[in-house]
């Protein structure tokens, strides 16, 4: 294994998002700050307790998850797509790096960006006295697991996209709607029974639910089902990414 090569690859990817920190870090933090302020304080103070917790405590894990997903996905999708678009992916293709090292380089940087953004959101919540932590290990597991899933998904989109518009399609039509409908802002019990069943088919519900449990000790779905979904998605997206990289699809002419 080319360890120096891999380490350099990760460094370069991290440096890439630090170079545009306003866009990659400050922007999600400001957006989280506004969410916490508006939903937690302005609107939240007029909402009753949900399962015994305040509204801000209830929505914070979802807000954190939303930022984690967007950051991990944005990191790998935009990095790979832009490198293909500007052709400096060739700099990596001619180097003695294996497909595994390339994938690891992109994905680790995606997870790092997700965690850095997530940590920032958590610190904002600390300032607003809205941060809780019941199970640190589980919190890290969910944060890393979800960042991995969306880093792989970002790579798949970065490979597939042929235009900047295509790069945003998944985010606009799948990720954002499913996240918002995954119980970020509402309890599943606020919905009619049939809608609850539909919500339980949404994997994003389990991501938010698991993170919520790790932070405030409250969950509305099955943690086991959530863990299984997470493992399946990591393996499925990781396996597909590996396959496409190894065939050189849209990477090597």
């Amino acid at each position: 294994m080319n360890l120096i090569g891999l380490q350099t690859f990760i460094q370069r990817e991290i440096q890439r998002f630090l170079r545009v920190a306003i866009q990659t870090l400050v922007s999600p933090w400001i957006s989280a700050l506004l969410y916490i302020f508006i939903f937690g304080y302005v609107v939240g103070q007029r909402i009753d307790l949900i399962a015994g917790v305040t509204y801000i405590d209830f929505v914070l894990p979802g807000i954190l998850m939303l930022n984690l997903i967007n950051s991990a996905f944005g990191q790998t999708s935009s990095s790979l797509y832009f490198q293909r678009f500007a052709r400096h992916i060739e700099e990596v293709l001619v180097a003695p790096l294996s497909y595994l090292e390339m994938i690891l380089g992109y994905v680790i940087a995606g997870v790092v960006r997700g965690l850095v953004v997530g940590f920032g959101v958590f610190m904002i919540a600390v300032v607003f006295s809205a941060a809780n932590m019941e199970h640190v290990g589980l919190f890290l597991l969910y944060s890393i697991g979800v960042s991995l899933i969306f880093s792989f998904l970002g790579l798949l989109i970065g490979l597939w996209a042929d235009s900047f518009e295509q790069l945003t399609i998944l985010n606009t039509f799948i990720i954002t709607p499913l996240t918002f409908l995954g119980g970020v802002f509402n309890s599943i019990h606020m919905l009619p029974e049939k809608a609850q069943l539909i919500m339980k088919l949404n994997p994003f519900f389990y991501f938010v639910d698991g993170l919520r449990y790790s932070m405030i000790g409250l969950h509305e779905g099955s943690l086991f089902v959530g863990a299984v979904i997470m493992v399946i998605l990591v393996l499925a997206f990781g396996g597909l990414t590996w396959y496409l990289f190894s065939t050189g699809w849209r990477l090597r002419g």
Binding site: T8, R12, E91, A95, P96
Partner: peptide
């Protein structure tokens, strides 16, 4: 390889470009 097209990260400083490429090739 020095290719015909400029296949390089145009926003990266020159010293960094060389530094990273050296790393890709496993140089300490």
């Amino acid at each position: 390889l020095s290719p015909q097209e400029f296949n390089i990260d145009i926003f990266a400083p020159i010293r960094k470009i060389l530094w990273y490429v050296g790393g890709f090739y496993g140089m300490s």
